[in-house]
């Protein structure tokens, strides 16, 4: 789907708006909804996914020519699961607090359709360098949307932004809980559609 004329810069920026994985492609909904209780949580989940995306994209583009076509999906999943395990061990060692907050959703990066989707649609057909940039671009787009959703939910739900409290009181608790996740994502998508329709 990507054409050859796309510059290195476009590889990185296309994930931010035009091919935004959350608002346009609707991929990776589970971590998007579950981990965005605050801006910081959204940001860390985005960066964790970015890490796996870049590395698995690079590894898969390197091994793709020698992987038999029939077993390519299982092979890709094992590659992705390996990097997720590396990430789990690194996070347990260096950021145990964040690891505990994000919990289950770190191992679940394995089944995040963004990662397998990029492996299948881009990394298996492009060079290692381009695949790394593609992973970086899509990962940044994902991180950006998760941070925005987290920020909106944090402002409405607890009256703070990135942990900095600027409103007194508790805020509307529902926005930090499950219903808020669906509502905020739904309304942000409406705004995004409006913006895209205007352009």
């Amino acid at each position: 789907m990507e054409d050859k004329t796309m510059s290195k810069f476009q590889l990185i920026t296309k994930g931010l708006v035009k091919d935004n994985p959350t608002f346009v492609l609707l991929l990776g909904m589970c971590p998007t909804l579950a981990t965005t209780t605050s801006a910081v949580n959204g940001l860390s989940m985005g960066l964790a996914t970015l890490f796996v995306l870049v590395l698995s994209n690079m590894a898969i583009s390197a091994i793709a020519p020698v992987v038999p076509d029939k077993v390519h999906i299982p092979v890709y999943i094992v590659v992705i699961a390996t990097f997720v395990t590396i990430l789990q061990l690194l996070m347990q060692a260096f950021t145990p607090g964040i690891y505990a907050t994000l919990g289950l959703f770190i191992p679940l990066i394995v089944v995040n359709c963004i990662v397998l989707g990029r492996a299948e649609a881009f990394a298996s057909k492009h060079s290692v360098g381009d695949s790394a940039l593609d992973g970086l671009g899509v990962g940044l787009g994902f991180t950006l949307s998760l941070t925005v959703i987290g920020l909106v939910r944090e402002i409405l739900g607890s009256g703070s932004a990135f942990g900095w409290k600027f409103l007194p009181g508790d805020g509307m608790l529902a926005f930090v809980m499950a219903p808020g996740a669906f509502l905020v994502l739904g309304y942000l998508m409406v705004l995004f559609n409006k913006y895209l329709a205007k352009k």
Binding site: L26, G180, F182, L183, L185, G186, Y187, M189, V190, N193
Partner: peptide, 9 residues
């Protein structure tokens, strides 16, 4: 999807 998400909410 947006209206679906709001409904789920």
């Amino acid at each position: 999807v947006p209206i679906a998400l709001i409904t789920v909410g």
